[in-house]
Design a protein around this nucleic acid. Structure first.
Lengths: 234, 234
DNA sequence: AGACATTATATTGGATCCAAAGTAGCATTC
DNA sequence: GAATGCTACTTTGGATCCAATATAATGTCT
């Protein structure tokens, strides 16, 4: 197993490092759904003992990113169709309200930062960076709401969905459409129009969901796998 | 330190038991805000080693229930005024939508169960049981929505607020008013009127927040503590 | 006597070791 | 030859031990 080193400010504990590395690997899709997470092997990869690995996996479990099995370790969690719908619904609820809260108290600095992220996103070429930049853009705006609990909920939801969002961005027009929608959202924020920003955010999430869902449907139909399997791939 | 035994299906791991016991102690208010959580002492109380205690505290940290300090262990987390508002806003957002989703697909069994909880709540005399029964009532209805992620978010929010909800219920009229509002919500569910249930849930949460907030304000004014302290007691 | 430095102590994070549990493979029997 | 039971191995959860760190206490110097 091979993990990118992640951050590395030596101040962080081993547990933190392992946790964050695994989280990113799962969120970015580097670790496939169903992939086992053998503690010993991971410990070796990080040149540490199994203790920090255990704690990291326990935390991932709490985030719903892994399922535990009795033997042969924890595995990266799948997501069912119903959950997929549900989490997108939650995203809509919370993110729309977050942007509504954020716009009226948004600073120039936030807008500038958001535009930087927006630019970086639009220029990004490596698929493995897309979701990260996408999240940075949106969360930068949400952060202006100064509502850490909103942000925590949102990040928890994105952790579950980002691997699928990456797929959506990889589709034809995916990045292009996302960039356009981001531009509109950012414009609304700059104009101080919170209702327009909220409405655009809602459409944005709906569009992402719709295009992804139709893709997943067809790709599954093509695969013609067991029809009983209700969980999504990737 | 003394903890109630909690659940006990022997199948659970020590970590689970310690985690759940600590969580309940914090949520119920048995452990005061700022109370330290010395690993060794807790380990002795559960007759186990520090390893499961460490993992349990790490998980509580993720739930936002504790803050870590470098030394003298983690302490039960305080909540600021802003967070208080924020979490109530989130509750409103998510719980109102949860009940809206739940009502149309609610079964007789759920309604029956909810009425049982409602009855138990209205008859409850011990303050330490109130929040538990309150949560059971509401979450029983939300569970009907078959949306585990909604429920998870809601439970996370209630974990932060329950110690304050207990205070609110302890006020004059607290239990009485809550019981009346529960009755109305339940009636709307039984009538299959999801919009009315949603609207009543919204009012319910608003009322709880308002009465609690006014109480906390006055009680803090009475204490005349350092005005710089922006976090809430209990 | 007070302030600063140094030492002692308490507490946590991590490593190694041990026990329990579950799986897979092999042998034995029908 | 297939099914069932037994054994060996893998993997996890927990205990004990060690090291690093931060606080507390004490002593010394001005």
């Amino acid at each position: 197993m091979n993990f990118s080193a992640v951050d590395v400010s030596k101040t962080k504990s081993a547990t933190e490092i392992v946790f964050e590395s695994l989280r990113q690997a799962i969120v970015k899709g580097t670790l496939q759904v169903g992939a086992p997470l053998p503690q010993e092997e991971i410990a070796k990869a990080f040149n540490t003992s199994r203790i920090p690995v255990r704690e990291a996996i326990a935390r991932l479990h709490q985030l719903g990113l892994v399922e535990t099995r009795r033997y042969k370790g924890a595995v990266v969690a799948a997501i069912t169709n119903d959950e997929f719908d549900e989490i997108f619904d939650l995203r809509t609820l919370v993110e729309v309200d977050a942007i509504r809260r954020a716009v009226p108290i948004m600073t120039k600095a936030t807008l500038k930062q958001a535009r930087q992220y927006h630019l970086a996103f639009s220029h990004a070429t490596k698929p493995e960076d897309w979701t990260e930049l996408n999240r940075q853009f949106h969360c930068c705006l949400y952060e202006a709401a100064q509502s850490p609990n909103y942000l925590k909920v949102i990040n928890g939801l994105l952790d579950r969905l980002d691997r699928y969002v990456r797929v959506q961005l990889s589709l034809t027009d995916g990045m292009e459409r996302a960039t356009q929608e981001h531009e509109k959202i950012l414009s609304a924020c700059e104009a101080g129009d919170s209702e327009r920003a909220a409405s655009l955010t809602q459409s944005h999430i709906r569009d992402v969901k719709a295009s992804l869902l139709s893709y997943l449907q067809t790709s599954r139909d093509e695969m013609q796998h067991q029809t009983s399997k209700k969980s999504l791939p990737v």
